Amino acid sequence: MFAVHQAPLLEEPWLEFKNLLVRQLAFCVASPNILSAIPSELVLKHVFQLHDNVTWQTHFQNYQARLRYLDQHPQELEIFLQQLKSTRLGLRFEMFIWFWLLDQNVHPYQLLGHSIQKIAGPKTLGELDFVLFNHETGKVEHWEVALKYYLAERDLSLAYWYGLNRSDTLVRKLNHFSQKQFQFADALDYPIEQRFAVLKGQLYLPIEHSPQHIPDWVNFQRRLGYWGSCIPPQSAHFYRLQRLEWICPQQHISSDTAQWWSNGLYRQKETNNFYMFRHAPLLAQKLEN
C-alpha cells in the first residue's frame, strides 16, 4: 500500500521546518502543481499555463533563508494570517501565496494587484487573484491560485476526479479557469500577457481498485494519496489529521492512533503517506454512464 505510484525520491523540503505556519508557507511555495500538464482532452476557451516543477524548486531555493528566519521568528507571518477570518483552506493557501509575493527580495515578481474585481456597470464580471509584473520576462501575468483535493474513480480519466463535494470536479475547475477566470485581456490598465493557474494540493487514487494506468497529466513529483471506505490493514499506524494539517502536517503527531474512523484525512506514522477515508453510505451515487 502507498508505495507503487510514488516517485522514487520525492523532494518535500517543507518538512524540514518546525513551525506549522512556516511548514505550510514552505509547502505553498515549494510544492509542484498537482498536474504536470493541462489534459489534452480539455478544450480551452482562454489559454493558460502551469508553472513547471523547476520553477517552484527555484522559488523555494531563493526563499530558503527567509523561511529559516521565519521558522525561528514567525510573528510577522502570524500577524499577516490574522487578516483571514475564514477557515477555508483555499483562502488560507491564497494568503500564504500573497505573503510570499509581497516579499520582492526573493522572486522576480512585482505585485501589481490582488483580488481585483472586474465590474461593468452594476454587474461584477469576475475577480483576478493576482496580477504581477515578471522582471525576468518583462511581461504582465495573471495568476489564479487554488488548493484542491481530488479523488479518482472508475478509469481515472479526467471526468472522474471528484472533490469531497462531488459538484467540485477537476474538469469543472479546469473549465472554470479557461472559460471564466482567465477571460480578461487587461487589469488595472495593464495588458495581460501570460496566464498561470497555480493548482496545488493532493490527488488520491482508489485503494480498493487494482493498479490502473494513471493519466500522463498527473504530476508524479507531487505525492499521491489513496482513498477508500475500508480501514487499511495497517490501521494501527495511522492518525487523523486536523483540518489545517491538510496543507502540511505538524512536525509531531497531532492526535492519538486512529481507533474510531470518520470521514477525513489520515497520515501513516513515520511516513508522509496519506489516506482519505470516506464512509461508504455517505458517498453520493456515481454518475450514470
Rank of each mutant, 00 (worst) to 15 (best):
S115P: 00
I116V: 10
I116S: 09
I116G: 01
Q117N: 10
Q117F: 01
K118D: 05
K118F: 04
I119M: 15
I119W: 10
I119D: 11
A120Y: 03
A120S: 14
A120I: 02
G121T: 00
G121D: 10
G121W: 00
P122R: 12
P122W: 08
P122E: 11
K123G: 03
K123H: 14
K123I: 11
T124E: 14
T124G: 10
T124N: 12
T124K: 14
L125G: 12
E127G: 09
E127S: 13
E127N: 09
D129N: 07
D129L: 08
D129V: 10
D129T: 08
F130H: 05
F130A: 05
F130S: 01
F130V: 08
L132N: 00
F133L: 15
F133M: 12
N134V: 11
N134L: 08
E136N: 14
T137P: 00
K139C: 13
V140H: 02
V140Y: 07
V140I: 12
V140G: 06
E141R: 02
E141S: 11
H142I: 02
H142E: 07
W143T: 01
W143C: 06
E144D: 12
E144Y: 02
E144P: 02
E144N: 07
A146L: 06
A146C: 15
L147T: 04
L147Q: 03
K148A: 06
Y149C: 09
Y149A: 09
Y149L: 14
Y150H: 06
Y150R: 02
Y150L: 11
L151N: 04
L151D: 06
L151R: 03
A152E: 05
E153Y: 07
D155R: 08
D155W: 06
D155T: 10
D155V: 07
D155H: 12
L156C: 09
